[in-house]
Write a protein that binds this DNA or RNA. Structure first.
Lengths: 132, 132
DNA sequence: GTTCATGCAAATCGTTTGCACAATG
DNA sequence: CATTGTGCAAACGATTTGCATGAAC
């Protein structure tokens, strides 16, 4: 996404942001499109995506993606946490025990029942921090 | 992916699993394809994907995806953890403090420098556990 | 010999982009 | 009026799939 641009306001973008703020959910582009197409009969999905990218660039929203645009596969089927290097992008299995206390924390303090969790840590791997 | 099937062995699938076990990395389908195309000159990407799905079905490998095949967006830009309901799939922002101790744990016990982390909890949301 | 896997190519699907026109400032 | 945004449709790229042939058991 192109940074350091100036943006004009648009009614479409204002509404996309409003909708994202109203809903407690984490909608897809298509959901936003469906919600708004009555209001903007000629709305196109391209507009939704372009505006979402602008809002991301402005730091007004976040995308729940996970770094890679590709599916990634691993043969380590035991539960484990991942470390992802900000610089080189490599994904590393961590040799740390799974912490069941985290699930309890959710169960004690929220109305949800956590059975398991995933953690991804981000930072610098040893290679990259030595290189610096 | 179709479950409850029987699978014949194939040299291609054996090698895909072997490669995934050898590499400490978390490769993409395309990386596996590139590695194996010398060994199987007529190999196609379709075969890679089909076999990866079979291996997933057999529980021999894991995919590092994150539930949704769609990008998802949210207006809550403050750091927070997510809860994802196994039954209805909804993604919910958790009102729990971020735990900096988790990063220290990585920094103390591994050669990596963790600066931040993400957690996704999985289980049942209040709606779905009441429904049961 | 029946079932499953492969190679090939086309299809699918979420997302991006080029272009002519409309809206913004 | 100079720039940015929109709608439309085509393009893109990762993944999936239909089909005829080959391998497994």
């Amino acid at each position: 996404m192109a940074k350091n641009r100036r943006y004009n306001r648009s009614r479409q973008r204002d509404r996309i942001l409003e909708l994202l703020r109203e809903t407690g959910d984490h909608p897809t582009a298509d959901w936003l499109y469906t919600q708004l197409k009555d209001e903007f009969p000629n709305l196109s999905v391209g507009t939704i995506y372009r505006n979402l990218n602008i809002l991301l660039d402005q730091g007004l929203i976040k995308k729940i993606d996970f770094g890679s645009t590709f599916d990634r596969f691993e043969a380590n089927t035991a539960p484990h946490y991942h470390f992802i290097c900000d610089r080189c992008g490599s994904i590393i299995d961590l040799d740390l025990p799974i912490d069941p206390d985290l699930d309890s924390r959710v169960n004690d303090r929220t109305p949800y029942t956590a059975l398991r969790h995933k953690i991804e840590f981000f930072g610098l791997c040893n290679r990259c921090s030595n290189m610096q």
